[in-house]
Amino acid sequence: MSRIVLGTLAAMLCLTTGAQAQTILSAETAAPNTTPGISIIALSEAAAKAGVADIQVTSGQTLTNSVQNVAEGKTDIAAAPFILPFLLSKGVGPYAGLGAEKGAELADELAVLYTYRISVQGLFAFDSSNISGWDGLEGKTIFNGPPRGAALTNARLLIKTNTGLEEGSGYTGVQVNWGQAVKTMQDGSADAFVLPMSFPDPRVSASLASGNMTIFSVSKEVYDSEAFNNVAKLPGTVKFSMPIEDMGYGDGITVVSEDGTFRGPGTVGADIVNKSMDFALAKSLTTAAIENIESIYHAKAPFMPVTWHGETAIEITDMCGPNPLKYHPGAVAAWEEAGYTLPDCAK
C-alpha cells in the first residue's frame, strides 16, 4: 500500500511541477528577421528554457491586427509599436471602423511585459537611382511599408516632416507585405525606400546584391525643428541618434550626414499581453525574458544588442504620457525583483 501511495504522490508531484511548462500560448509578430519578430521568438525560447510555457509563434503578421487580437483575447502575446494601442484607444486610423468607445474598451485590455526599440525610420536608395536625399523625393516612387500598419503611418509622417510632401500629390507610394520587401527593393518598383531599419539592417544588407546603397540621415536642422520634436511626442516615437561608425555597415553602404551622426525617429513598443493574463504567468514570462536578455535576445542577430531590451527609463521606453499602456502587474513584480526601477506612472 505504501508503494502505491508513494507512486501516486510522485505522479502528482510530476504533474504539479510540469503543469506550468505545459502551458501553451499563442503569439503574433512581424517578419522573423526584424526586431519584433526576433523578440517574440526569443521570448518563446526563454519561456521554454525556463519551463514556463510553449509559445506557438506566428510571424510575418501585420501588427495592427495582432494588437487587436490580443485585446480581444484571440492571441496571448504580440509585438506592438506603441502608436497602435494609442490609435486603438482613440478608434482612429486603422481602427476607425471600431469607433472611439469600442477602441478605448479594447485598448484598456492591453498590458506590457517589456519594451524595446523596434526600429528607426529612415530613407535609403540604390546609388543607381540618383536620389540626392530628402530633397530629391518629389515626383518619385517610394516604397514606404506594408498596406496597413504603423510603419506606413510613420513613413508618411516622416516624409511630410522632412519635405512637406504628401503621398499621392507629392510622390507615389508603393506598399507591399513584409515578405515581399526585399524583392520589391531589388526589382526596381521604387526609386527610394522610407522604411524601419535596424543597425545593421538585414533588408538593406540582402538588397546589396542589386547594387550599392546610400542611407540618408535626417538633417540636424530638421532633427532640431519644432515639427520633428512634435513627431517625437507621438506615442511610441523617440528621437534617436547614433555615430555612423556604430551602425554596423560595411562595404556597399554609404551613410550621408553632416557630422558623422545618423539621426531619425526611433519607434518603440513592447511585447504585450491581455491584462487578464494570470499574474504568475506574466511574471514568469517577464522573468524568463530578463534572465535571458544577453544569452538569447542579444545573440539572435547583430542588431539586437542595441535595441534597448532591458531598459526601463521613460525617455527610452516612452511609457506614460499619451501612451495608454502600463506594465502588467506580474511584469512589474518581475522587473522589481530583478532590481530594476519602473516609473510609478507605468505601473
Rank of each mutant, 00 (worst) to 15 (best):
I83R: 07
I77C: 05
A47E: 13
Y95Q: 03
G103M: 08
E45A: 14
G93Y: 04
A48H: 14
V92N: 05
A104W: 00
G103V: 00
A100C: 09
G93L: 01
K49Q: 11
G60N: 01
L106P: 00
V67N: 01
Q68K: 13
L106T: 00
D108W: 15
Q68L: 15
A79T: 04
I55R: 02
E101G: 12
G93I: 03
P85Q: 05
V70N: 03
Q68S: 12
D54V: 15
D108L: 14
A53I: 03
L87Q: 13
L84M: 02
A104R: 07
G97K: 14
L43A: 01
V70D: 11
A107H: 06
K49A: 13
L88Q: 08
E105G: 04
A47V: 07
E72Q: 15
I77R: 08
L63K: 09
G97W: 11
G91W: 06
K74W: 12
T64H: 05
D76Q: 11
A50C: 06
L88E: 03
P81W: 10
I83A: 08
A80R: 04
K74F: 12
Q56Y: 12
I41E: 12
L63M: 04
A107R: 05
F82E: 05
Q56R: 14
L106H: 00
L84R: 01
G99Q: 03
E45D: 15
I77K: 05
G97Y: 13
I55M: 04
P85R: 02
K102L: 01
G51A: 08
A104E: 04
V92G: 05
L43V: 02
E105R: 07
E45P: 14
V70K: 07
A46Q: 13
A42V: 10
T64D: 06
V67P: 02
A47H: 10
F82K: 09
A48T: 08
E101C: 15
L63Q: 06
T58G: 11
L87A: 06
S44V: 11
G93C: 02
A78P: 13
A107P: 09
A71F: 06
K74Q: 12
P85Y: 01
I41Y: 12
S59C: 10
G73V: 05
K90Q: 14
A46M: 09
K49V: 05
V92T: 09
G93H: 06
E105M: 06
E45Q: 15
G73Y: 10
G60F: 04
V52F: 01
V92K: 11
E101T: 14
I55W: 00
S44G: 14
A42H: 14
K49I: 05
S44R: 09
G97P: 13
D108E: 14
S89K: 05
L63H: 03
A50L: 01
G51M: 01
G51Q: 04
A96W: 10
L84F: 02
T75G: 11
A42S: 14
G60H: 04
F82I: 10
Y95D: 03
G73K: 06
E109F: 08
A53G: 12
K49M: 09
E101S: 15
L87V: 03
A46V: 09
S44A: 15
F86N: 11
Q61D: 12
G99C: 04
S44N: 12
G93F: 08
V52I: 04
